[in-house]
Design a protein around this nucleic acid. Structure first.
Length: 503
RNA sequence: GACCCCAUCGUCUAGCGGUUAGGACACCGGCCUUUCACGCCGGCAACACGGGUUCGAUUCCCGUUGGGGUCGCCA
């Protein structure tokens, strides 16, 4: 294999804010490629029409740029195997799907979503495992072809063997076996003509000559489906290497409910990109010389993919901060530190926006210090009694804050007018006066009952910091039990049948 | 629930048959210092359990337990 160029890729789907887990996989893929003098490819997996957005893609590219991770080929810079955006490769997928159908490896499925859901439930109950019952697998091809031509809605599914075992090798774990009977016939082409992940990833990884698929552990169970597609096409599969999943303190998969996961949050709260990358590099890997502070350059030097450990690492903010501190103290001259601060928040634009919020409250120039600390620190302490919504207890307040959180999550753009409209509507819907409703938010966002204008403040802080602070405030109030949260979520969804928030 | 993956201090990890089980974060002492922080020194703290294999298991095998993931026309 030494004669084949090492090519790795990062394949994020542009749905929502760039995730720290994406950066983690990017780092390892990037370092492994560089180590071997290979190429690192960025491919945007925007096959989910509903959730993908150009805005999110921009944010991903922007965040990776902030981190200093550079790709050799990608949607923004092109490359020999483009396009690098899956939505622009539909003809390619169609061609491949047609081939599979023609060769009898795949078939159109006409089952309705309702039926599928029913079948899933029944099978779940009867213990047959869940999934599809392969109803359409035995429709004669001519008949199926006719139904397709008649315009009947369909998906395409791949024919998974009914028996036998799939064996494959994971670079870190060795041989893994999985019975084919545990896998149902996967959809590879959706009714809207877009491919599913399984098809697109295989076709693209092959066409883009990816040598090592480095991705999160959550994909292990999908490998057999991919292997099967490689077989159908007569292609040689790449090396599969599944990285452990980053974890919350309770060891569940890292989630925004329990941790800051948005790269933007780290940036906004003053984490240096080199420190974040260094820290991520310590998750599952450790340099032989025990020196825990290292640059990406040094990591490239010392890295061995085969040394990645498999226990899911808990993401420990304390250690990140310690590392970050070392970078500030040891690596930056005061001059450079000043420049970093300027890039970060102490620049004319940002400071002007902040001053707008407090000018009316100033009597001396030095008042800005007293009025604006919450724009510059994450070190905010909450007094419980300040946080309570008038007339409600801890849990009641948390429920309101949770709904605010859900609303803020879907807000675009995140500016004061939009935020205001959201609160206005929330106030109307709940019957809680706006003034009453926003009171705990002032505290959550600034730590104080007397503070800068709420919506302006939120806009300046940005969505990620704002939401994290609200979450922290909820935590201070004791949070919501899982049961309560579920119930609230149901009510919330029911009150928003359009699925578009309160709009 | 079924399937798959995993298992060393609270956390990140080193270890790849014989070690006083090493380092780092956090925590606790002490030193330095006008305070705090930094820095330095020291301390606390782990091989999940049960069977094998072996002269000898943290290390290899099996089981149990525990944790995680997956079971979507989402990735």
């Amino acid at each position: 294999m030494s004669d084949v160029e090492i090519r790795t890729r990062l394949a994020p789907s542009p749905t929502g804010a760039p995730h720290v887990g994406t950066a983690y996989q990017a780092l390892f893929g990037y370092v492994w490629a560089r180590k071997n003098g290979g190429k690192f490819v960025l491919r945007i997996e925007d096959t989910d029409r509903e959730r993908s957005s150009a805005e999110s893609e921009r944010a991903i590219i922007d965040s990776l740029g902030w981190l200093g991770i550079k790709w050799d080929e990608g949607p923004d810079i092109g490359g020999p195997y483009g396009p690098y955006r899956q939505s622009e490769r539909l003809e390619i997928y169609h061609r491949h799907v047609e081939k599979l159908v023609a060769e009898g490896h795949a078939y159109p499925c006409f089952c309705s979503r309702e039926r599928l859901e029913r079948v899933r439930k029944e099978r779940q109950k009867s213990g047959a495992g869940s999934g599809y019952d392969r109803k359409c697998r035995n429709i004669p091809p001519e008949e199926a072809g006719k139904r397709v031509e008649n315009g009947e809605e369909f998906t395409v599914r791949m024919k998974v063997p009914l028996e036998g075992t799939c064996r494959f090798t994971d670079f870190l774990r060795g041989e893994i076996k999985k019975d084919w009977s545990s896998i149902d016939d996967q959809v590879i082409l959706k009714a809207d003509g877009y491919p599913t992940y399984h098809l697109a990833v295989v076709v693209d990884d092959h066409l883009m000559k990816i040598s090592h698929v480095i991705r999160g552990e959550e994909w292990i169970n999908s490998v057999p489906k991919h292997i099967l597609l490689y077989r159908f096409f007569g292609w040689k599969p790449p090396v599969f290497c599944h990285l452990p999943l980053l974890r919350n303190k309770d060891r569940s998969k890292l989630s925004k409910r329990k941790n800051p996961v948005s790269l933007e949050w780290y940036r906004r709260t003053g984490i240096l990109p080199e420190a974040l990358l260094n820290f991520l590099g310590l998750m599952g890997w450790h340099p032989a010389d025990d020196e825990e502070k290292f640059s990406v350059e040094e990591m490239v030097e010392k890295f061995r993919l085969e040394d990645v450990s498999l226990g899911g690492p808990v993401f420990d903010l304390d250690k990140l901060k310690w590392l970050n501190g070392r970078y500030i103290r040891e690596d930056l001259t005061t001059e450079q530190l000043m420049n970093r601060l300027e890039e970060w928040a102490l620049n004319r634009d940002n400071f002007t926006r902040i001053l707008e919020t407090c000018k009316g409250r100033m009597t001396t120039l030095s008042d800005w210090g007293r009025l604006t600390p919450h724009f510059f620190t994450e070190d905010i302490e909450y007094r419980k009694e300040d946080l309570l919504l008038d007339g409600l207890d801890e849990t009641g307040t948390c429920e309101v804050l949770q709904v605010v959180l859900w609303e803020l999550e879907r807000l675009t753009p995140f500016d004061k007018d939009t935020i205001y409209r959201m609160f206005r509507k929330l106030s109307d819907r709940t019957g809680i006066k706006l003034k009453k409703l926003t009171a705990p938010l002032y505290v959550a966002v600034s730590g104080k009952t007397v503070s800068t204008p709420l919506f302006d403040t939120m806009e300046i802080l940005g969505s990620d910091v704002t939401r994290m602070r609200i979450r922290k405030a909820m935590e201070r109030l004791g949070g919501l039990s899982g049961k309560r949260l579920k119930k609230l979520e149901k009510e919330y969804e029911r009150s928003n049948v359009t699925g578009r928030g309160l709009d």
